[in-house]
């Protein structure tokens, strides 16, 4: 099946790994991710104030392009997923935003949030199925103790995101299991890494990261995975390097046996 794909700014630059492993793995699983032509950056933070319209337009353009393609829109970066999902919800539910955005964009067919936005993990769970994924795994990640780091953006506010149980999520643990590794559940997996505050105060972000990594380690995690480039940055930059952090798609790529030179897979 075909899906429209929205990579977002960071996957074209600092998080090229997240993008590359994601596309290659999807292709190996028989999924075609068709990158939207001429997509624009979503803005990275959802504009909360209800009178913000201009800051939502780039997201609306992407949503509309997917609608015109007649396909769901797949995201990979947690922040893009957060912004596109919530702006789409605004277009469905908020008549004022819908009217103003359509008046400004003047699309041939007005947009009212028809596109289905799905995150890559939901694609794996709901469209492929974790059981089928398990069958496709060529190199099960046996013996690896992996902590899922969810962060905030995928889960909250759950009323709008509808991603997973916001306080006891398990989609990434199920994903880890499908790949043959052992998921490590720890309490801080859905607490914030500090996000963009690291630009304002590294100390504040470090404090959050410390708590997360200590908690994950105390429960036996030997590595962490995330879907968010900013979580990745914070988790890596604000620790001593003893806890490896990888993208979800890199793990998938490995388990599907797509990495060259087998031996490296044992690390």
């Amino acid at each position: 099946m075909n899906y429209s794909y929205y990579p977002g700014c960071t996957l074209k630059t600092k998080a090229q790994d997240l993008d590359f492993y994601g596309r290659e793995s999807a292709a190996a699983l028989g999924i075609t991710l068709e990158e939207l032509p001429e997509w624009q950056c979503c803005g990275a933070v959802y504009p909360i104030a209800r009178d913000e319209i201009a800051t939502k337009l780039s997201a609306i353009r992407a949503l509309m392009a997917a609608r015109d393609n007649g396909t769901p829109l797949v995201t990979l970066c947690s922040a893009c997923h957060h912004v596109l999902t919530r702006v789409n919800g605004d277009m469905q539910r908020n008549a004022d935003i819908r009217m103003k955005a359509n008046n400004y964009l003047k699309p041939a067919v007005p947009y009212a949030g028809e596109t289905r936005v799905i995150h890559y993990l939901q694609l794996l769970r709901d469209e492929i199925g974790f059981d089928n994924l398990k069958q496709a795994v060529k190199k099960p990640l046996k013996g690896r103790k992996i902590g899922a780091y969810y962060g905030c953006l995928l889960l909250r506010p759950s009323k709008e995101m509808q991603f997973d149980d916001p306080e006891n999520p398990h989609i990434i643990e199920d994903f880890i299991k499908a790949l043959g590794a052992e998921p490590v559940v720890y309490a801080m997996r859905n607490e914030c890494c500090g996000g963009y505050v690291t630009l304002k105060s590294e100390a504040q972000a470090k404090e959050n990261v410390d708590l997360i990594i200590k908690n994950a380690r105390a429960h036996g995690a030997e590595e962490l995975i995330t879907a968010c480039p900013l979580c990745m940055y914070n988790l890596r930059a604000h620790q001593d390097g003893s806890m490896p952090v990888r993208y979800i798609t890199e793990l998938l790529y490995e388990a599907l046996g797509l990495r060259e030179g087998g031996a490296a897979d044992e690390t």
Binding site: G8, C9, T10, T13, K14, A15, C41, G43, A44, V45, P47, T55, C77, A79, G195, Y196, T198, L199, K200, P229, L230, M232, Y233, R236, A237
Partner: peptide
């Protein structure tokens, strides 16, 4: 190493 996502956020949030 700072990701673009953080810089875009900075322009938006600060």
């Amino acid at each position: 190493e700072i990701p673009q996502q953080a810089l875009v956020s900075a322009f938006r949030r600060y």
